[in-house]
Amino acid sequence: MSDRQFGLVLALPAIISLVLVVGIPGIQTLIYSFQRVPLSDDPATFVGTDNYGKVLGDESFVESLVVTLQYTAGYVLLATVLGLLFALLLDQPLRGRGIARALLIIPWATPVIIAGVMWKWLIDPQVGGLNAVLFEIGVIEDYKPFLADREWALVFTILAAAWHQASFSALLFLASLQTLPNEIVEAAKVDGATAWQRFRGVVFPWIRPMLLVVVVINVIYGVLQFDTVWVMTQGGPGDATTLLPILLYRQLFIFSDIGAGSALAVMLGVVAVLVSSIALILLGRDDPLQA
């Protein structure tokens, strides 16, 4: 057996598994997106691109796409930047660092659906604690009903999800920072580089491969976000937080239109690929996966 064959044999179980659990359902979704799929036992019929026309022709799609892009931008930015800051902080030789690293796990160990319930409670103007704190420290002059406001509702549904995800990002960044050889940093210090110069010149280039991985993962999670928003606002107020996955839920479980739902699912995948690509181009790296 040649090396190539041996490699293939080793990779085959995983590839077959993924084909079975992702490939087949994914391709089925793609096929459904060109069909009318009755829920009864009648066979599905081919309808060309009707489902795509239906999805794209619905004005709520465009509105939802805009909301999804805003949401994803905020989510990726927050989850990534906070994660990076946490990692940089927890990489410093500080007292209590061990405990702090344990704290890092808490948001991530909280199921996302519960994170949503928790944040909704937290920001409630009556029973929640956030208003009380902001009021006490003088940030607000009156209790603010955050979820009543379209912009704030989007901000806080982002915050709740990013609270969970920032820890995930931080852990990956922390790992990357651990491998940064001390000598390089010390050498930069000897050369008289300021902290910012050291970050720009040494630390950032070192963690950039990991940054790209984190951004891609966060983009995917952002575009597919559902649980947190659903338990916090059900897409409201109005359609202020109606993300594409919420539209997808409605197509599949309220309008019971499997064909249109599948078309929407395909579009969702396309959006995620496009947004990831844009993010990677902005970060200026051709191949994110060759870390």
């Binding site: 909704k120 409630d124 103007p125 009556q126 029973v127 009903p145 979820l147 009543a148 059900q234 409201g236």
Partner: peptide
Amino acid sequence: TSPTILTDDNPELIGG
């Protein structure tokens, strides 16, 4: 109305 009437669910309205 309650300012958060568009998203209020059980806990918020019970407390209120």
